[in-house]
């Protein structure tokens, strides 16, 4: 941490500051402004104070009911996909081949869903899941399972969740893989000499080493799934009924569908506040981990010895062990 203090650095940051301020602060100000007013069209605005916020948090009103219901659905959705994607991602990361061309091939295929436009992810699952033309829907129905995501709530939910697992598990897997790769070979050899079981290696070496990336993965996935809009919008359109209407979909309905500026703005602010809190946790984790890493690197400069140096004595040990 030997950065020099230099206030002139602000000149270097200024362009970023201006660009982001233009596209973040300015619009946010209008949102704050709207959230305190009511409009009856014709660009006539009336002061409403905190009325919208009160309504928003009161489940007996229309606005509050819709907001809290979509919030509940969204939180449930986030929890379910985290509960599936995190363990699955770890398993996939542990299943990565060790060397050769297969590593690159697996990485490329894993990364593929991450780079597909979100609306096309929706389209892919729409086409894949339809009972009449989709492979998945057709096979399920042929197997005697009555599956139709357009009309059945549970099927719609399952489709949206499987779609998210398909779309994002790779990210968790790739992050975990990056964490696993940073474990020095010597750790495994030490474990082998100690006769540690497969499970013990995972618990004592791999999991602690993946701690940081896992935390990043969980927070990233939570935030992104909490803001999900495009994929369910394309596949289910928030339906059937309101069963897959998440917060973003509800917000866009109110803002751009009904042009209810005051309600939408109040909802936006509360929504943004939740994200901001999670984001702050994320930031603290990131910067703490960064500082930790630096301290570690400074205090033990030789923490990662050259593999060849360590390998030789262990390789020499092995036959002896066998004899003994």
């Amino acid at each position: 941490m030997d950065k020099t203090v230099n206030q002139k650095a602000w000149f270097l940051v200024l362009p970023v500051f201006l660009v982001v301020a233009f596209s973040a602060v300015l619009p946010l100000m209008t949102v704050v402004n709207y959230s305190m007013q009511d409009t009856f069209g014709n660009n006539q605005f009336f002061w409403n104070g905190v009325g919208w916020f009160k309504e928003l948090l009161d489940p007996s009103t229309d606005l509050g009911g819709r907001f809290l219901a979509s919030l509940g659905r969204n939180l449930f959705f986030s929890l379910v996909i985290l509960a599936i994607e995190v363990p699955l991602g770890i398993v996939v990361a542990l299943s990565m081949p060790r060397q050769g061309w297969t590593v690159a091939a697996c990485l490329v295929i894993l990364a593929l869903p991450l780079l597909i436009p979100w609306n096309v992810v929706g389209t892919i699952w729409q086409i894949f899941g339809r009972p009449d033309i989709g492979l998945l829907g057709y096979v399920l129905n042929a197997a005697g399972i009555d599956y139709n995501y357009v009309s059945n709530d549970i099927d719609a939910w399952v489709t949206v969740i499987v779609m998210d697992v398909w779309h994002w598990t790779s990210l968790v897997a790739l992050l975990c893989y990056a964490g696993l790769k940073s474990i020095p070979e010597a750790y495994y050899q030490a474990a082998q000499i100690d006769g540690a079981s497969r499970w013990a290696v995972f618990k004592a070496i791999q999991l602690p080493k993946m701690n940081r990336v896992l935390l990043i993965a969980v927070l990233l996935r939570f935030m992104d799934s909490f803001m999900i809009y495009t994929e369910p919008f394309v596949v289910t359109g928030g339906g059937p009924g309101n069963s897959t209407t998440f917060v973003s979909i509800e917000l866009v309905k109110i803002a751009l569908g009904q042009f209810d500026l005051g309600k939408a703005a109040a909802l936006s602010l509360v929504y943004n506040l939740i994200i901001l809190i999670v984001c702050w946790i994320f930031y603290t984790v990131m910067t703490n981990a960064g500082a930790e890493r630096k301290v570690q690197a400074e205090s033990e400069p030789a923490v990662e010895p050259k593999p060849s140096v360590v390998l030789k004595p262990v390789a020499a040990l092995k036959p002896k062990e066998g004899v003994a």
């Binding site: 230099n6 619009p27 973003s248 703005a265 999670v278 702050w280």
Partner: peptide
């Protein structure tokens, strides 16, 4: 390279914008 007034806050503010839900900005951007 440098430390300057409000650098950490600015860095966090940038991150918070990266994470902001697009749905919130749709209407004001419009």
């Amino acid at each position: 390279r440098y430390r300057f007034l409000g650098d950490k806050h600015l860095f966090f503010w940038l991150l918070s914008n990266r994470m902001a839900p697009a749905a919130v900005y749709a209407l004001p951007f419009f």
